[in-house]
């Protein structure tokens, strides 16, 4: 029997009073894949991720995660997925351990304290487990957010710029950990990022968005070849500035 895709998005539309944020996108992520969701500010990445998580109700279209319709049955699958973003704070006044305990119980993790100890070892949190979350450095907060996202050993992981504002060493460390986690658990990851080197390193597929639409969707190698560029950053700039469309029109 074929397993349903990790994430299936079908003709997804989100219209706010201020305009269209997502204009009818369709894609499916196979199990165990790492897919980059790229686009400039206002491209619709965050709204797309929020609709996948069930935080925002689509105007039309559908989202299913691990075969479960998120509009009607999201509570059946939320414990099998998780989310991490440096822009979504963890409660500041609780200690790291307290926060992880609360979220561990919310996600139904069995043996929460053992799981916290395991993550503290893996993510090097032991030194500040009992410190208030609000008093941590940006790098430490990111590791804590990552620990929260991995608490329930999610099969589907959504990441919104997971290494934003981190120094290169910490960012590299986070990427390595994500690679390890994916390899160990065959997890499916959807990664929204502005960091093209991160996308080149982690992703086996890239979806390019612009003004709420998908403008390209392929492996990093094929995108580089199609746009005749050396780096994804140049491809990104071509798309953002409309040069890709011009080249296709000329051809």
């Amino acid at each position: 029997m074929t397993l349903p895709p990790a994430i299936a998005v079908d003709r997804l539309v989100k219209v706010y009073r201020t305009g269209t944020a997502v204009g009818g996108i369709t894609f499916a992520l196979p199990r165990g894949s790492v897919t980059g969701l790229l686009g400039g500010n206002g491209a619709g990445k965050t709204t797309t991720i929020a609709m996948i998580m069930g935080l925002v109700t689509p105007t039309s279209g559908s989202v299913s995660v691990l075969g479960t319709d998120m509009a009607r049955e999201r509570h059946r699958v939320l414990h099998r997925m998780n989310f991490e973003s440096p822009y979504v704070d963890m409660p500041m006044r609780l200690t790291v351990r307290q926060n992880l305990r609360v979220f561990g119980r919310l996600y139904g993790v069995i043996g929460v304290d053992e799981r916290i100890a395991e993550l503290a070892h893996d993510l090097d949190l032991a030194d500040f487990l009992d410190r208030q979350t609000g008093k941590l450095s940006a790098g430490q907060k990111t590791r804590v957010s990552l620990a929260k996202a991995l608490l329930n050993r999610p099969e589907v992981l959504l990441l919104d710029e997971p290494t934003a504002s981190l120094d290169p060493d910490t960012a590299d460390w986070v990427r390595t950990h994500l690679e390890t986690y994916r390899a160990r658990r065959n997890a499916s990851i959807l990664l929204a990022s502005h960091n093209m080197r991160e996308v080149e390193r982690l992703c086996d597929r890239v979806i390019m968005m612009k003004r709420g639409e998908i403008v390209d969707d392929d492996t990093p190698d094929k995108l580089l070849a199609r746009y005749g560029r050396e780096t994804l950053e140049d491809v990104f700039l071509d798309i953002a500035r409309g040069r890709g469309e011009a080249r296709e029109a000329a051809q």
Partner: peptide, 25 residues
């Protein structure tokens, strides 16, 4: 090993988690 987390439509454990959060606060 991956813990099998059973889906519960209503969970006293989740309510307890939130009470624990407010108690910590």
């Amino acid at each position: 090993a991956h813990p099998e987390i059973a889906y519960e439509s209503f969970s006293g454990r989740r309510i307890g988690a939130m009470v624990l959060r407010y108690w910590y606060l």
